[in-house]
C-alpha cells in the first residue's frame, strides 16, 4: 500500500517537476543573462570547429547522378520590389555588383563582366537550417578573385552581403562571413544553377555560396559586398537578417 502510494506520488511528482522544468526553461530563456549564456554555445562551436578542423577543408562535391531531381527554393522567392522588377525586365543588364567598404579599389561589376572572369563549378549539398538538403550544381566567380581585384585592406575582418530582397519585414536581407570562409576556394558568387542562369526563386542574378554553412548564409539577390572591420554597426549588429530578427546563430557551420 505504502509502496503503491509512493509510486503514484513519485510519478505525479516527476510529471509536475518536468512541467515546472519546461515552463522554467521558457522563462529562464527570457532573461538576458541566460540568453547570453545559451548564445555563447555559438562561439564555442565556432572555436571548437576551427580548432580541430582544417580551415581549408572542402565541402563534399557530388557527381551529376547524385543531384536532387528538383532543387527547392526557400525564403524569398521573388524580391518583388519596383527596383528589382525593373532590373529583371531588362535581363539584369543594368544590374551592378558593388564591392566597397575597406577596399582600395571599389568595384562595380556587370553580369557580363562576372561571366568573363575565372569561374568555379561545384555540385554541392545545400543544407537548410530547417533540416532538409538539396544537391545542385553551381557556377560562379570565386569570392577571393574579387576581393583581390578590389584590393581589400588588411583591416577588413568580415564581408557583408547586401541583398535586394526584404526578408518578410521592412529590413533588407543581408548576411556576413569572416575571412576564413571568404577566401575558401568553394566560396563563390554563383550566377548559374544546374547549367542554367540562376532562377529568380534561387536568387537571380547572383547569390553567395558558402558551402560549409547552412542555407540562410547563402545570401540571394546580391547587390553589394562591403568589407568591414566590425559587424556591430551594420543593421541590428548580429551579422545577418535572421540573426537580427530571430536570434539565429551567426556561425551556421552547425
Amino acid at each position: 500500500m505504502t509502496l503503491i502510494l509512493s509510486r503514484r506520488a513519485l510519478v505525479t511528482g516527476a510529471g509536475a517537476a518536468a512541467t515546472a522544468l519546461l515552463t522554467g526553461c521558457d522563462r529562464l530563456a527570457e532573461h538576458e543573462s541566460v540568453r547570453k549564456a545559451l548564445f555563447t554555445a555559438d562561439n564555442f562551436h565556432l572555436w571548437m570547429q576551427r580548432a580541430i578542423t582544417d580551415r581549408n577543408a572542402l565541402a563534399q562535391e557530388f557527381s551529376p547522378d547524385q543531384m536532387s531531381p528538383v532543387f527547392r527554393a526557400n525564403g524569398t522567392f521573388n524580391p518583388n520590389t519596383e527596383d528589382y522588377k525593373a532590373l529583371w525586365r531588362n535581363g539584369f543588364a543594368d544590374w551592378r555588383l558593388k564591392i566597397d567598404g575597406l577596399v582600395d579599389r571599389p568595384l562595380s561589376l556587370s553580369l557580363a563582366q562576372l561571366h568573363a572572369m575565372p569561374h568555379r563549378e561545384q555540385i554541392t549539398r545545400h543544407d537548410c537550417v530547417e533540416g532538409w538538403s538539396a544537391i545542385g550544381k553551381w557556377r560562379g566567380v570565386p569570392l577571393a578573385v574579387l576581393l583581390h581585384a578590389a584590393r581589400m585592406r588588411t583591416t577588413a575582418r568580415y564581408l557583408v552581403f547586401h541583398c535586394a530582397d526584404f526578408g518578410g519585414g521592412t529590413d533588407p536581407y543581408y548576411e556576413s562571413i569572416d575571412l576564413v570562409d571568404a577566401f575558401h576556394p568553394q566560396t563563390i558568387l554563383a550566377y548559374a544553377l544546374n547549367d542554367r542562369a540562376l532562377p529568380v526563386q534561387n536568387g537571380a542574378p547572383l547569390r553567395l555560396r558558402v558551402e560549409r554553412q547552412l542555407g540562410y548564409k547563402q545570401a540571394k539577390y546580391l547587390m553589394r559586398i562591403e568589407a568591414v572591420s566590425d559587424l556591430a554597426s551594420i543593421f541590428g549588429g548580429k551579422g545577418g537578417y535572421w540573426e537580427d530578427v530571430a536570434g539565429y546563430q551567426w556561425y551556421a557551420g552547425i
Binding site: 519546461l22 526553461c25 521558457d26 530563456a29 536532387s68 528538383v70 532538409w132 535572421w242 546563430q249
Partner: peptide, 30 residues
C-alpha cells in the same frame, strides 16, 4: 544525401506538441 519536399520521405509527421518541445512554442532559433 539529399531530401526535401519534392523527394520521397520515409516518415512524415505532424509537428510535435508544445509540451514535448523546448521552447514550448515553435521557435527554431531558440
Amino acid at each position: 544525401h539529399y531530401g526535401a519536399n519534392f523527394d520521397h520521405a520515409w516518415l512524415v509527421l505532424e509537428r510535435f506538441p508544445g509540451w514535448l518541445t523546448l521552447p514550448g512554442h515553435y521557435n527554431l532559433a531558440m
